[in-house]
Design a protein around this nucleic acid. Structure first.
Lengths: 163, 163
DNA sequence: TAAGATTGAGTCATCAATCTTT
DNA sequence: AAAGATTGATGACTCAATCTTA
């Protein structure tokens, strides 16, 4: 069975036979799958009146455990966006009542972003829905294969997450 | 060795022990890796005065083979963006001299977007640079493992690419 | 009616510059 | 100086509505 990336790679081999395009076999699939997943997630989150970016921030705060708060800087590394983006996200989340800003008691440069009860309930419901849907997407694979896949991806990912 | 997704998953297990979050082991790695790849690609393409979205369109035209032309509709399925986005992309590419619009000789609803010689040379150089860089990213894996990884990803991807 | 492409409004992204506090 | 957060300019995206031709 062939997918879209097979024909993409075949296209490049026809176009530029002297170039080794084999890395695309892996990495084009990663980006292409990521785009499909983004779309799927958008529809799942929409059922909870959330967007993907909303979920990403709320989820990071939720995983932090009580009292469910992180600084904007900590949220940056969790979500892989730039600082200006995070300021804007927090503004919008605050306006919707999902988070509140608190000044840090020690260092006045730092802001603490805290999840509200409303935000917590919302993100919990969304997560349950999400993993249910993503389980269906992975239905093509057995448990062992999922483990292998996760392990191989981790090997590629580790160098990125280092410093 | 652990990566960021390991701690994300561990965070969810602490926060919501009753939920099976194992799908995230695979799919969060896919999206997270995709984000890292996007950044890496941006810097590679910048050396050729291209952006990722620029490359995506030019690459699809390049792979089509002579005379290197596709309709906007065909470009949509290749790049996974919406039709409004594609119109805008073609406008900007045309202004830069990378593509030209030609009316279809048979069906007047259809536009043919054709790669210029300038666009072709540019995308060829960018592709060579890209696969070289991506080969380094995959250095952590052997040939067999790359094949396994590509195969597992294909199994997940196939249902998305169907009709 | 439908297919294909375009338009415009609104949203969220990056980047570089700035402000405040250490 | 440097760290952390914010601001504003700009860019590209989605979505829904529209236009043209089949």
């Amino acid at each position: 069975v062939k997918d879209e990336v097979d024909s993409i790679v075949a296209g490049w081999r026809r176009a530029l036979p002297e170039v080794d395009v084999s890395p695309l076999e892996v990495l084009s699939r990663v980006t292409r799958l990521a785009k499909h997943l983004d779309r799927r997630r958008s529809t799942v989150f929409a059922r909870h009146n959330l967007e993907t970016w909303t979920f990403d921030v709320l989820a990071a705060l939720r995983r932090a455990g009580p009292p469910f708060q992180l600084s904007p800087g900590e949220l940056l590394t969790a979500t892989l966006v730039t600082s200006g983006t995070m300021t804007n996200r927090i503004n919008l989340l605050e306006a919707r009542g999902f988070v509140v800003r608190k000044p840090d008691s020690v260092d006045a440069r730092i802001v603490r972003v805290r999840l509200t009860t409303l935000g917590r309930h919302r993100v919990d419901a969304a997560l349950k829905d999400l993993v249910e849907q993503e389980n269906l997407i992975l239905a093509a694979l057995g448990t062992t294969e999922r483990g292998e896949l996760a392990g191989l991806l981790r090997r590629i990912l580790v160098p990125f997450d280092l410093p």
